[in-house]
Write a protein that binds this DNA or RNA. Structure first.
Lengths: 155, 155
DNA sequence: GCGAACTTTCACGTATACGGGAAGGTTGCG
DNA sequence: CGCAACCTTCCCGTATACGTGAAAGTTCGC
């Protein structure tokens, strides 16, 4: 297999805040604010204390943005959902720190539980939206029925 | 058919702001604010200028609350979705103002179109949430697979 | 090794979505 | 009528989620 023109297996492509923010469709200010709220950990800092973001940080930022924009969660709710994610990353580290299969199994099991909760939270939201959609659909159907009625009579 | 103990066909049960707000789970302050934003029309006023809400107002308030709480729309977005509802009420009046079947058919058709748009907006939101759920489900599945792997080995 | 571009940390400003109180009028039961 | 409970319109306060400089340090290509 041929390696691309970039260095093979780049150790870690790190972005500074502006590039990182642009990449995920946020402003540097928002990213700093999220960090201030504890939604994000410092990632890494350069010699001169510049924030440096790796791919996992970008994923996290995209997740935050999706929860905020698409799901309409407040940042407080996002924080709740992310506590789970934080535990995940700690768990990830803990996972690689051990080789004990029992311990690893336990960590993975915890992760599965957290993901389950995330799914439930989102599903609840979807359920409420579904109700609203069904409602609108019902009204639309009744309206169409009335149109058909008129068409029937004036035929 | 026997009529209930209330006056038969009450002309219009009108509630004052506190009762109306409580009925739909809002505060009087919020209700006034929504009116200020134009999400709600004055409904009716008493002799002494008290706001009076009828059933259709309550429905509208419940709709606003659902869009805000359940769907997570901003009040600006709610306003957008309600422009349609406003047109609906004007259309409702226009409907009863005419007996021309052609005109009535047109009004009903407009209403169906507005409901269609509402459904589409909500469906888009559901779609984005679905993506997030699927994402979480996928990660969960992979996590469970890794657990199974461990169980396989340590069996 | 210099300058333009970027970054840092305050710190204050702003839009949204209300909360809460003042000052005063309205309702309606007794 | 009287008065408690409600309502009205200001108007200022607050939490959230950032925007927008200011002042100072950092990077980096030429």
């Amino acid at each position: 297999m041929v390696v691309t023109n970039e260095q093979a297996s780049t150790p870690a492509r790190l972005l500074r805040i502006q590039e990182a923010a642009a990449e995920v469709g946020l402003t540097p200010r928002s990213v700093r604010y999220y960090e201030e709220l504890g939604l994000l950990r410092p990632a890494a800092r350069s010699e001169g204390d510049y924030r440096l973001f790796d791919v996992s940080d970008l994923e996290r930022l995209r997740f935050i943005k999706a929860l905020r924009d698409d799901a309409g969660f407040s940042l407080a709710e996002v924080a709740q959902l992310l506590e789970d994610e934080e535990a995940r990353e700690r768990g990830h580290a803990a996972f690689h720190a051990t080789t004990d299969p029992v311990e690893r199994r336990r960590l993975l099991s915890e992760r599965a539980t957290r993901l389950e909760r995330q799914v439930e939270t989102l599903e609840r939201k979807i359920g409420r939206l579904r109700t609203m959609v069904d409602d609108a659909r019902g009204r639309r159907a009744r309206t169409l029925a009335r149109i058909a009625e008129i068409d029937e009579v004036t035929r």
